[in-house]
Nucleic acid binder design. Structure first.
Lengths: 177, 177
DNA sequence: CAACCCATGTAAATCGTTACATGATTTG
DNA sequence: CAAATCATGTAACGATTTACATGGGTTG
């Protein structure tokens, strides 16, 4: 899976500009995949050259002109091929967790501060997802709802496990208190 | 955070070869970060050139010679700088979830099959982590235990949410039955 | 004797981020 | 009038994966 596959998937729903695609990454999808303009525009170029999408230039008044891309039959076929390929292994890459993994080399209070900060940040993200759910829910497919729910619950468990871990860390050894 | 930071962190505990480092990625750490030989060896080379680690060649009988790397004071300082830098955003990149996100364009039974497979795979990973926990637990630091617990619980929720989602998906519309 | 473990490395290819570059219009 | 929105793109750089390349020793 790469940006080509995801962008083709997004275009299944209808023609879009690169700018609009970027905005679609501010949905539950962003929890599992994200792309910047620096990826989106070159990818659209590649997909067009390969014949998977076609560009239509739209001249606008009072706005910059835009390029609207539509998926072709070749593009749909390419997307089907992606779905036929074996799914890649999941990768939960977490800088914070790596730091925590090396926590034994730090002061207990330093690690505790890291964890508290991670909890706060996760709570913020959870609230954003919860607000997002209220907004997006009506237009989401059942499948997408599962994605959103997973994002929500993953954050909830993370908060719970970190809170429990913090408590254990602080009770385990009282040396510096 | 990149492989340099993680490898320095691993060497805080004592000198290691590239081969041994690779094996350390078969621990709870692999849940949050992984690296292949193609990353490890060039990274060790860079770290050595930068003076963050030093190499000692060890000649062995009946085995290929090995290069044992130790962290230097400059390396420890570099690791401290990494810890002082702001943690990067987490990235839960999931091919399966992306596919699920586009599930509305597939047959309901196809999506259900995807979900069932994901549940099975997650259960397998969960069991492996549980077995690993029994093995590693005695030698793990409190911080590392939090990492492991998070890995465990994240998998558990994922299974629960997918099972619930599957049930809803199948009950929501009975059209094809 | 096949398979696996030990052990190190290189090269090509792919992929992606960040920063740069531009510029009109609308909104507070 | 500053900031945000709309809108597209390029270039440099960095990171990583996969495959290739080698080869002796041990174990079942």
């Amino acid at each position: 899976m790469n940006s080509q596959d995801v962008i083709l998937g997004l275009l299944l729903d209808g023609p879009k500009t690169g700018y609009e695609i970027k905005h679609l990454f501010e949905s539950p999808l962003s929890f599992f995949f994200d792309a910047s303009f620096g990826t989106i525009y070159p990818t659209l170029g590649k997909l067009e050259k390969a014949g998977y999408i076609v560009k239509e230039s739209v001249v606008q008044d009072n706005r910059p002109n835009k390029n609207v891309y539509s998926i072709t039959e070749a593009g749909r076929e390419r997307f089907r091929q992606y779905l036929d390929s074996p799914p890649e292994k999941e990768a939960y890459k977490s800088d914070f967790m790596v730091r925590l993994f090396f926590g034994e080399h730090q002061e207990r209070d330093t690690v505790a501060a890291w964890i508290r900060q991670a909890i706060e940040q996760t709570k913020t993200e959870l609230h954003q997802l919860q607000e997002g759910k209220a907004v997006w829910k009506p237009e989401m497919s059942p499948s997408q709802l599962i994605c959103l729910n997973l994002g929500l619950e993953l954050n909830e468990v993370k908060i719970r496990v970190l809170e429990e871990g913090l408590a254990q860390l602080l009770s385990a050894d009282q040396a510096s208190d």
